[in-house]
C-alpha cells in the first residue's frame, strides 16, 4: 500500500495502517526495516485490540489483527472489505481499481459491471428495470466485460 501511496494521494484517499503493536514498536520497525525506507503512512497502535475487535479482524488465537482492508466513504460508510489470513499479502492494483469504481459510482450514480476500469462502459443511471432485466447482454457484450 505504501508503494502506491502517491496514487491514493492523487485519488484523495487517506490511508491508515493498524496492528496490535505499540507506537514504540511501529517507530522501531520503520527505522530498522529496509523495505520501509520511504514509509509514509500513519500507523495506529491497537495494543488493546479494541479497534481490531470492532472491525472483526482480531484473532483471539494469535493475539494479532489478521490482514483486513476496509474502504470507507466520506459519510463514514464501509463500502468494501477484504480479509486474508496472514501468509498471503494483498494486491494493491485490484484495490485501486475498486476505489476508482466506487468513486465513479459516487460521482455519477452509474453502475460499474465486472472488471470495470476507468474509461470502460458503465450501466446507465436510472436504469429501466423492465427494459434491462435479463437483457444486460444486449447493452454490454461479454467480450467488453472481459476485456
Amino acid at each position: 500500500m505504501n508503494a502506491a501511496s502517491h496514487k491514493f494521494k492523487e485519488l484523495g484517499v487517506e490511508l491508515l495502517v493498524v496492528s496490535c503493536d505499540t507506537k514504540f514498536s511501529h517507530k522501531r520497525f520503520v527505522e530498522t526495516e529496509p523495505l520501509l525506507k520511504d514509509f509514509s503512512l500513519k500507523m495506529a497502535a491497537d495494543n488493546k485490540h479494541e479497534m481490531s475487535q470492532a472491525f472483526g479482524v482480531y484473532s483471539e488465537n494469535d493475539g494479532v489483527a489478521i490482514r483486513g482492508r476496509f474502504l470507507v466513504n466520506p459519510d463514514g460508510t464501509v463500502l468494501a472489505q477484504e480479509v486474508l489470513t496472514p501468509p498471503v499479502g494483498r494486491n494493491v492494483q485490484e484495490f485501486i481499481r475498486q476505489v476508482e469504481a466506487f468513486m465513479h459510482v459516487a460521482k455519477t450514480g452509474e453502475v460499474c459491471p465486472a472488471n470495470w476500469r476507468p474509461g470502460k462502459k458503465t450501466l446507465p443511471v436510472n436504469t429501466d428495470a423492465e427494459k434491462m432485466t435479463g437483457k444486460v447482454g444486449e447493452y454490454i457484450a461479454l467480450e467488453e466485460i472481459l476485456s
Binding site: 500500500m1 491514493f8 485519488l11 484523495g12 484517499v13 487517506e14 490511508l15 491508515l16 495502517v17 493498524v18 496492528s19 496490535c20 503493536d21 507506537k23 514498536s25 511501529h26 517507530k27 522501531r28 520497525f29 526495516e33 523495505l35 500513519k42 495506529a44 481490531s52 472491525f55 479482524v57 494469535d62 494479532v64 489483527a65 489478521i66 490482514r67 483486513g68 482492508r69 476496509f70 474502504l71 470507507v72 466513504n73 466520506p74 463514514g76 496472514p86 501468509p87 498471503v88 499479502g89 494483498r90 484495490f95 476505489v99 468513486m103
Partner: peptide, 27 residues
Amino acid sequence: KYITVCSDDYKGKWLTVCFYPGDFTFV
C-alpha cells in the same frame, strides 16, 4: 512523532484502513 488518530479525523474524507498481523513480520 507520536500522534493520536481517531475516526472523527476522517469525517468527510475517503479512507482506507489496513490491518496487518504485526511489526517485524512483513508480507
